[in-house]
């Protein structure tokens, strides 16, 4: 059974149709990436999955159960965690408080502690900044805090929206290494990226989204070599 199973999902902003019947699956243990240009509906897809938008049509099954009508906090409590675009850091709280909030729904003190240590191992820079207000960190560090915070919820499915947005190439490399590590630790990841090149490097499978429809899908390596993709997204000739 797929961890996340989306069928025929349609979403509109008022009269504008953002998603026109997309279907996708995420199997346990995978990194699946959703690539596509601006306004293709990538973020809309994630926002619909996490309950911030409600779909007009279609269904979303998480672990076989429909979640399309649930509220965002109830979905998050099922350990389907969304790191929103623009990071959504709590700027006037310390980094440590941000991390604590990640574990808000959990009561298993001992495991939270393990996850906390693990998250800080993945991001040593976050550990150095624990007592700083999160708003004073650099963009890259804030992205790290956002991911570390999401890890404290011990997600079954981690949805990352544009983790590379506005970051220096070195930092982007670093973050993608960590994404690999997180996945290697057993966490399933759904990754939305504009940087298709990078996304296809880390992902197992990919979906290409174009104006609200899935144009292509398949193993990431295959898509990376496909001529259409290279022309459209990878800047190749």
């Amino acid at each position: 059974m797929a961890l996340l199973d989306i069928e025929n999902l349609s979403v509109s902003y008022g009269s504008i149709r953002a998603l026109r019947g997309i279907s996708l699956k995420v199997e346990p243990g995978e990194i699946v990436t959703l690539i596509g240009g601006n306004g293709a509906g990538k973020s809309t897809t994630l926002r619909t999955i996490s309950g911030l938008l409600s779909p007009q049509e279609g269904q979303i099954l998480f672990e076989g159960k429909p979640i399309a009508s649930k509220s965002p906090h109830a979905i998050a409590a099922n350990r389907l965690i969304h790191v929103p675009e623009g990071r959504g850091i709590f700027a006037n709280l310390t980094v440590e408080e941000n991390l604590r909030l990640g574990a808000y729904c959990r009561k298993d003190t001992h495991e939270i502690r393990q996850d906390y240590e693990h998250a800080l191992e993945l991001f040593p820079r976050v550990k150095e900044r624990l007592w700083q207000l999160a708003g004073t960190l650099s963009g890259g560090e804030q992205q790290m805090v956002a991911i570390a915070r999401a890890l404290l919820a011990r997600p079954k499915l981690l949805m990352l929206d544009e983790p590379s947005l506005g970051l220096a190439p070195q930092i982007v490399q670093l973050i993608f290494q960590v994404i690999r590590k997180i996945n290697a630790g057993g966490t399933t990841i759904l990754l939305v990226e504009q940087n298709a090149n990078l996304a296809l490097q880390v992902a197992h499978r990919a979906y290409v989204l174009e104006v609200g429809k899935i144009e292509m899908s398949g193993p990431a390596a295959e898509l990376a070599n496909s001529d259409d993709i290279r022309k459209a997204y990878l800047g190749g000739h």
Binding site: G51, A76, I81, G88, F90
Partner: peptide
């Protein structure tokens, strides 16, 4: 929005 994403009602 981020608060909701943390599971906060």
């Amino acid at each position: 929005i981020a608060a909701q994403a943390m599971g906060i009602n």
